[in-house]
Write a protein that binds this DNA or RNA. Structure first.
Length: 280
DNA sequence: GCCCAGGTATAAA
DNA sequence: TTTATACATGGG
């Protein structure tokens, strides 16, 4: 049972089923960094946040209860019962094994625009460099938040749409720069309305996203799951099948089960943490 | 140095 | 419709 307390230091969430490293550094979001003192700091939209694990739970530093309820509560998906979800996987030995490997991982409900750009950048790339490119994107083109940490908001579609490709060179994003601009121009110009896409049937939504240059089947699934809260995304995709076959050679494809959404994130994280698996 | 990164667009078979 | 290749950068 989730317990939320306002304290002088911020909002304390006790027994939150939230492991900061598992959740913030598992390849689903790219704006949070672990600090030398063990806390985690990052920004979502234009909202900065520092999180710290304490003996009593996870402390959301300095924010008010109102800020927690109006934004971070949904962002961390706190109103979903992950314990129950994990239990529902118990019938599938393989899936349950993966889910139990990272019991403190939650699937974040990120902003659709940020997810779109982040996962365009993520293609054929590694997490460390993805984070670097996203960080430079925000520093060069986002508005400074004006806090003591020197944080920057994620740049708007309009700001990026008005840049030329050469102007994105400092990001060191390589050929993805053209993709970023194409996405920004279609969203800023109204050709693609991300709220509308989020409400479409999953098939229509996939098709709509893939109009964007640089968005293929994989990036589209990421945007749907992480940026639009569509848990039916990633119906045991081909990458996952290959990876699981290697990690669980005795399993038949049927025993992988019908994995999607949160389940696939558990599997992905499990595969990523096992060097013996070279499919991811 | 070398291989590779949760891919995609494009051309060619 | 399927398969091969280039693509910019830098992490390990």
């Amino acid at each position: 049972m989730l317990q939320i307390l306002q304290t002088p230091d911020g909002v304390l969430v006790s027994k939150p089923e939230l492991d900061l490293a598992q959740t913030l550094d598992c390849g689903q979001c790219f704006r949070f960094y672990e600090q030398p003192d063990g806390s985690w700091h990052g920004v979502a939209r234009d909202k900065p946040l520092t999180l710290r694990k304490t003996g009593r739970g996870v402390l959301f530093e300095t924010i008010s209860r109102a800020e927690f309820d109006s934004f971070w509560r949904r962002y961390f998906d706190f109103d979903r019962d992950y314990d129950a979800i994990r239990e529902s996987y118990r019938a599938n030995e393989t899936l349950y094994h993966c889910a139990c490997f990272s019991p403190g991982m939650r699937v974040l409900r990120q902003d659709a625009w940020e997810a779109l750009i982040s996962f365009i950048i993520s293609q054929n790339n590694n997490v460390k460099r993805i984070k670097g490119i996203v960080d430079r994107l925000c520093r060069y083109f986002g508005e400074p938040i004006g806090n003591a940490d020197g944080d920057y908001a994620f740049p708007s579609p309009a700001v990026l749409a008005n840049r030329r490709e050469e102007e994105l060179a400092p990001l060191r994003a390589g050929w993805r720069a053209a993709y970023i601009l194409d996405a920004a121009r279609r969203v800023a110009g109204g050709e693609i309305d991300l709220n509308t896409v989020a409400a479409m049937s999953i098939g229509e939504a996939r098709k709509a996203l893939q109009i964007i240059h640089g968005v293929g089947p994989k990036v589209a699934e990421c945007v749907l799951l992480y940026g639009m809260g569509r848990l039916e995304a990633f119906p045991l995709d081909v990458w996952m099948k290959r990876a699981m076959k290697q990690l669980f050679p005795d399993c038949t494809p049927e025993s992988f089960g019908d994995c999607a959404g949160i389940a696939q994130q558990y599997i992905f994280h499990y595969c990523r943490c096992h060097p013996s698996c070279c499919c991811l």
